[in-house]
Design a protein around this nucleic acid. Sequence first.
DNA 1: CTTATTTTTCAACAAGCGTTGAATGACGTT
DNA 2: AACGTCATTCAACGCTTGTTGAAAAATAAG
Lengths: 213, 213
Amino acid sequence: MREISKRDRILDAAEELFAERGFDGVTLRQIASSAGVDVALANYHFGKKLELFNAVFERRSALLNKSRLDALRKVQAEQADTGPSVEQIIEAFLRPLELTQEMADPGWRHYLALIAYVNNSTYWGKRMMSKLFDDLVQEFIAALRQALPTASDQDLYWCYHNLSGALTLTLAQTERIDTLSGGLCKSSDFQAAYDHMIPFVAAGFRKVCGAKE
Amino acid sequence: MREISKRDRILDAAEELFAERGFDGVTLRQIASSAGVDVALANYHFGKKLELFNAVFERRSALLNKSRLDALRKVQAEQADTGPSVEQIIEAFLRPLELTQEMADPGWRHYLALIAYVNNSTYWGKRMMSKLFDDLVQEFIAALRQALPTASDQDLYWCYHNLSGALTLTLAQTERIDTLSGGLCKSSDFQAAYDHMIPFVAAGFRKVCGAKE
DNA sequence: CTTATTTTTCAACAAGCGTTGAATGACGTT
DNA sequence: AACGTCATTCAACGCTTGTTGAAAAATAAG
């Protein structure tokens, strides 16, 4: 069994702490302490604090984009004649996230919570989200445009905005729904979250972007 | 024309800056400078930094809750026989927010962006959201339960979670949809946001919580 | 074994932080 | 005009922050 390098331990610790408290809510000393290394080591490997943040944010993005795009290509291949349905597209967009979140390794869970933090932030979001995720999102919107041929682009983007919001709150794992529902629903129950989100969002798309009777 | 007190100028400045950069992303010196007062004055009026944050967060909550509850009571009174429809309930939940966001005073816009920050944060959200907004939310969920009599509570809460996410991202005003849509949709166009969100969410509720055929 | 190179720690820096106590200003009451 | 109260500023405190250069340890190369 291979040891985890100190460099990776710093990334892991930073990932978890940044996701929970945000960029300014965490000090390099906390990260170093949580990783069990000296403060200066983060600087040696990554440079400034902001560069460490970027390194964390970019580490898993390519892998994530690939698994989601693969899921889309798969349903597109399966429905080569008619094209995939709205539900199938949404499913390809969401299920890969569920899979990583339910893995034994908590790293992916922290990473997706970090994405939620960035995506919901005016200050960080504009800079960071587009660069890494725009291409993928446009790919999915193109598929939706084909599945909903009567939709205007404006309607499509606003519907995606709703989808993105519902997803973001799920990724954040705020546990708010736990207290609100008296323990009936749990933020950690990702399968239940996506099982409800997929038909909910698909129905929304159909209603707003579907044929006008 | 009445002068704005320095105390209120501190609240206004803190509201805007906290909403944009989060609790730890803002210093008391930035707040004081933006308000045009001395650093020590924030401490005199509000105590510690965290107490200032709480003061900002609570300042407008009662007023906001009242306007949303009034909107709900109104549609309930109008439809005393059948009870309000899902669309009417969602509309009562959302439109008061749109109204405050479109006011000339930008304070409300900043305040709702702050709510988005808190609601999406594991660290702050658990403590702060429930205390101020749970009663109101349960009131709306009760109304939805009545409009969707076949729904299980679990389904209802998960659907509310989706609604809350879509709303939160709108409140945050990240401008992500602006770049994504190439300027076709604007985060600042609240009317368009809610015009699309209401039918979208209502359709989701009906699909997930409606009668099973 | 020696030498280079990379990784890690140590010690310290200047800057900025939240917070405080005392001094000053403003303002209405008597 | 003198007083007391509230509002505001000033100056400074102890502490933590991100960052750095040099020392030490580990690893690889010859």
